[in-house]
Each structure stands twice: as structure tokens, then as C-alpha cells.
Design a protein around this nucleic acid. Structure first.
Length: 271
DNA sequence: ATGCGGACCTGTTAGC
DNA sequence: TGCTAACAGGTCCGCA
């Protein structure tokens, strides 16, 4: 579910409610997520203050007065703040109880999410150390992408979804950005001009920014920190629209698979 | 080094 | 209507 805009929407919604608070207790009902939730978490967190909540790619980083809680929402995870006791439902795996009697609740039906802990520099963590640039930062540029793509034969869609190349571009926004840039998703990454990469970089930034402004894309059940859905679904031009007419030229949107992921494109607009 | 396929797990949907 | 198979927004890992 969550791509960068959804994770950023979550961060913005949650951050004001947790920063400055102290952790009273951690309740783990289901330890088996993508990796087992470390037992150390329950011992280390209580008494510590949450100073900051950042995002790196699709990872959320809660900086405590000592140590960092690393959270990934996986495919179906969500976080929200509870002000009063509620539930828990069958997929409410973790509650972080705070000193103002609110709690941060992690829900994740598919359990591809993660809660991890580090007391070293968070960005040096093995999961984060190899990540490419943030797509919304200036160092993600046409020069960067074009240079990195040389000799690469993989499909450009796989290329921009590779977190070592750039973080945060998941399947939905990869499809949308390639449509906006007029690039065929199966084209070899190394066979695209600098100028077209300039258009692609611009399209990625624009589509992500627009999605963040609209609170992310809710296809099935994405909700933000307040339990509200996102509204970007109505702005999708190709994703999940196989067989429908291209909004630009009217041709029928193709539905195919690239790198085992559903891919949608307009055969006339995208080359 | 790059690039593929498999793996993790459950819920929903498509198809028979 | 009911059962089964395929598929789903992520991404790490091991192997060729």
C-alpha cells in the first residue's frame, strides 16, 4: 500500500502527536512481522523521549533521546494515534503507549512491515546505508539518473523502482511518472536520452508532490494518522486503468507485467 | 555488478 | 452461490 507519499502523509499526521512525548510502555501482540520485533524494544523504549520523526525513503525514523526506532509500513501497514482505549482488532500488532495517555497503534494485515531498533547512527543501519537519493531532493537530477543508467539493460520501470537508484518510487507512481514523461516502461534504462531523463525526473517529483498534497493514494485501505483516506486515486491516469481510454490521446491503456509487477501504459503516448 | 526469481503473509477479487 | 487460484501498494536475499 504505502509508497513515499503515503509514508510522508503518515509522518506529517503522526509527528506532532508523538514528538516531545515519553514512552511509557510497548505492547507487542504479534512479534512476527517481516523480521521478528526485537525483544530489546520493550526493554529499551520505556522512559525515553521521542525527539523527532523523520522519513528516509519509505522508512520512518523515530529519534529518541537515545536510539532510533525504525518503522516500515510494508505493503499493508498503517499507523495512527488513539486518544482513548479501542480494540484491538486482529491486525493491531503493536501499541506504543505515551505519557499523555495516547497511543501509537501499528496495524498491518499482511505483516510485511517492520519495527527495528538501533542505538547507532540510524542512517548507517544496514537497511538504510545503501539507499539512493530522495526523489524530492535536488541531487536526484537528470544528470544523476542518466549517468547511472549507462549500460543498464533493465527496464526503466525496474530501474526507477530500485531503491539503490532512488528511494520511494513504488509501483503506482512509477507507472504514473512514466506516463507523464511519455516513456515506455519496458524500455532499457541505458537507452534513454538525458533530455528524456530530465522529463522523467521532473515527472517523478511532480507526481509525488501532488500525491502528498492530496494525502496519498487510497486504493483499498490506506489511512493517514487520523484514519482518513488519501484522495490521489482520482488523479491516477494509467494505474489500474487497463483497457480504459488514455486521457491524453484516447488509445486503450495496456495492462502488462514488467518485473513481476502490474504495469500500465499508453502504447501511443509512451515510447 | 547486474538482474532475476523466490520469499515473507493475509485479504480480496476473478474465474470456473 | 461456493470454492480455488491469482493477485495485491514492498523489498530483501541468494543465485546465475
Amino acid at each position: 500500500m504505502p509508497e513515499l507519499p503515503e509514508v510522508e502523509t503518515t509522518r506529517r499526521g503522526i509527528s506532532p502527536h508523538v514528538c516531545g512525548k515519553r514512552v511509557e510502555r510497548l505492547i507487542v501482540r504479534q512479534r512476527q512481522l517481516r523480521w521478528p520485533v526485537p525483544a530489546a524494544l520493550s526493554r529499551r523504549l520505556p522512559g525515553r523521549r521521542i525527539d523527532d520523526m523523520r522519513r528516509r525513503g519509505k522508512y520512518l525514523l523515530l529519534a529518541l533521546d537515545r536510539g532510533t526506532l525504525i518503522i516500515h509500513l510494508g505493503m499493508s501497514g498503517s499507523l495512527r494515534i488513539l486518544r482513548r482505549q479501542e480494540g484491538p482488532g486482529p491486525h493491531d500488532h503493536i501499541d506504543l503507549l505515551l505519557d499523555d495517555n495516547s497511543r501509537l497503534r501499528f496495524t498491518d494485515p499482511r505483516r510485511f512491515g517492520a519495527w527495528l531498533w538501533t542505538e547507532s547512527a540510524a542512517l548507517a543501519h544496514p537497511l538504510l546505508a545503501q539507499l539512493g537519493p530522495e526523489p524530492l531532493d535536488p541531487d536526484f537530477s537528470a544528470d544523476y539518473l542518466h549517468t547511472l543508467s549507462q549500460q543498464r539493460r533493465t527496464a526503466v520501470k525496474n530501474f526507477i523502482m530500485n531503491s539503490r537508484v532512488v528511494v520511494g518510487v513504488g509501483n503506482i507512481y512509477a507507472n504514473e511518472a512514466l506516463f507523464r514523461a511519455g516513456i515506455h516502461p519496458a524500455r532499457a534504462a541505458g537507452r534513454i536520452s538525458w533530455t528524456r531523463y530530465e522529463g522523467l525526473v521532473s515527472a517523478i517529483k511532480t507526481v509525488l508532490n501532488e500525491a502528498i498534497e492530496q494525502g496519498g493514494t487510497t486504493l483499498r485501505d490506506f489511512v493517514d494518522g487520523e484514519g482518513r483516506p488519501g484522495y490521489f486515486s482520482q488523479s491516477l491516469q494509467v494505474y489500474n486503468r487497463g483497457g480504459q481510454d488514455c486521457s491524453r490521446c484516447g488509445a486503450s491503456i495496456r495492462d502488462t507485467r514488467i518485473g513481476q509487477r502490474s504495469s500500465y501504459f499508453c502504447p501511443r503516448c509512451q515510447r
